[in-house]
Deep mutational scan, measured.
Amino acid sequence: MQYKLVINGKTLKGETTTKAVDAETAEKAFKQYANDNGVDGVWTYDDATKTFTVTE
């Protein structure tokens, strides 16, 4: 399945996608991506759209 990440950071904004077997695996990949880019915020997930959002 394909999952999307929407980033609403202080210095980084945008979107990225990943393919993963489940939401938990996608979340780990997205959190690593956010961490690598210095984004630390509040996470939400919408199962209907398979979209994670992180807001600083």
Rank of each mutant, 00 (worst) to 15 (best):
T25K: 06
T18G: 04
G9E: 03
T55F: 07
N37I: 15
N37Q: 13
V6I: 13
I7P: 01
D40P: 04
N35P: 01
K50S: 06
T44L: 07
K19N: 14
T53S: 06
E56Y: 09
Y45H: 02
Q2T: 15
Y45F: 08
V6L: 08
T44N: 08
T25I: 07
V6K: 07
V39F: 09
L12F: 14
E27D: 04
T44D: 09
T44Y: 08
T11Y: 14
E15L: 11
Q32A: 12
V6Q: 06
K31V: 06
E24A: 12
N37S: 09
V42S: 09
N8A: 09
E24P: 10
Y33G: 01
A20F: 09
E15D: 06
K4V: 13
T55W: 10
E15M: 12
T51H: 03
G14R: 11
A29S: 10
D47T: 08
N8Y: 12
K10N: 10
K50C: 06
D47G: 08
G41Y: 03
N8S: 07
T53K: 05
A23G: 05
D22Y: 03
G14V: 14
W43T: 01
E56A: 07
K4W: 13
V39H: 04
Q32V: 09
M1R: 10
E24M: 11
G41R: 01
K19M: 15
M1E: 15
E24G: 10
T55C: 06
G9V: 13
T53D: 03
F30M: 03
Q32W: 06
T17S: 10
G14M: 14
A29M: 14
V6C: 06
V6D: 03
D40C: 12
E24F: 10
Y3V: 02
Y45R: 02
F52K: 00
K19E: 14
D36K: 10
V39K: 02
Y33N: 02
Q2H: 11
K31G: 03
D40L: 12
F30D: 00
N35S: 14
V6S: 04
K10Y: 08
V42D: 10
K28H: 09
T16E: 06
T11G: 08
G9T: 15
V54T: 02
W43F: 04
L5V: 03
T25E: 13
T16W: 15
D36N: 10
E56G: 05
L12Y: 12
T17D: 05
N37G: 05
D47P: 13
K4P: 01
G9R: 04
K19R: 15
L12M: 13
Q2N: 12
V39N: 03
E24D: 09
K10A: 12
A29R: 13
Q32N: 08
V42N: 09
D22K: 04
L5Q: 01
N35W: 14
T25A: 14
K28Y: 07
K10L: 14
K50W: 05
Y3K: 01
K31L: 08
T51Q: 04
E24Y: 12
K4D: 03
K50R: 14
G41W: 07
T25P: 02
G9M: 14
L12N: 08
K28P: 02
A48D: 11
T18M: 15
G38E: 07
T16H: 14
Q32P: 01
T18S: 05
D47W: 07
E56P: 09
G9A: 10
Y3W: 06
A20Y: 08
T11R: 10
N8T: 08
T53I: 05
G38C: 08
G9I: 12
Y33V: 05
D47I: 08
T53N: 05
T53P: 00
K31N: 04
T51A: 03
G38N: 10
A26C: 02
Y33T: 03
Y3H: 03
D47S: 11
V54L: 09
D46A: 04
I7Y: 07
D22I: 03
V39Y: 06
A48M: 12
D46W: 03
T44K: 07
G14F: 13
A26L: 01
D46P: 00
G9C: 13
L12W: 14
A29G: 05
T18Q: 06
Y3R: 01
V39D: 01
M1Q: 14
T51D: 01
G41T: 02
T18F: 13
W43V: 01
T16A: 12
K13I: 10
I7Q: 02
A23K: 15
N8Q: 11
A34C: 14
T18I: 15
M1W: 12
T25Y: 06
K31Q: 07
D22L: 04
V21C: 10
V39T: 03
D46V: 05
V42T: 11
T16Y: 15
A26N: 00
A34H: 01
A20D: 03
V39E: 02
T17A: 08
V54H: 00
K31H: 09
T44R: 06
K13A: 09
K19D: 11
N35D: 11
K13P: 06
V39C: 05
N35Q: 14
T16N: 06
F52W: 06
T16V: 15
V21A: 12
T17Q: 08
A29H: 15
K19W: 15
N37H: 15
G9W: 06
D46H: 06
T53Y: 12
N37P: 01
E56Q: 10
Y3E: 02
D36M: 10
L5P: 01
N8G: 04
V21R: 10
T55V: 09
K4Y: 15
V39S: 02
K31M: 09
A26R: 00
T17V: 11
D22A: 04
V54N: 01
V54S: 01
E27I: 12
V42P: 04
D22E: 04
A48I: 11
L12G: 08
A23F: 14
K19H: 14
W43M: 04
L12A: 08
T55N: 06
N8L: 13
T49L: 07
N35A: 15
F52L: 01
A20C: 08
A29L: 15
F52N: 00
D46C: 08
N35M: 15
D36T: 08
L12Q: 10
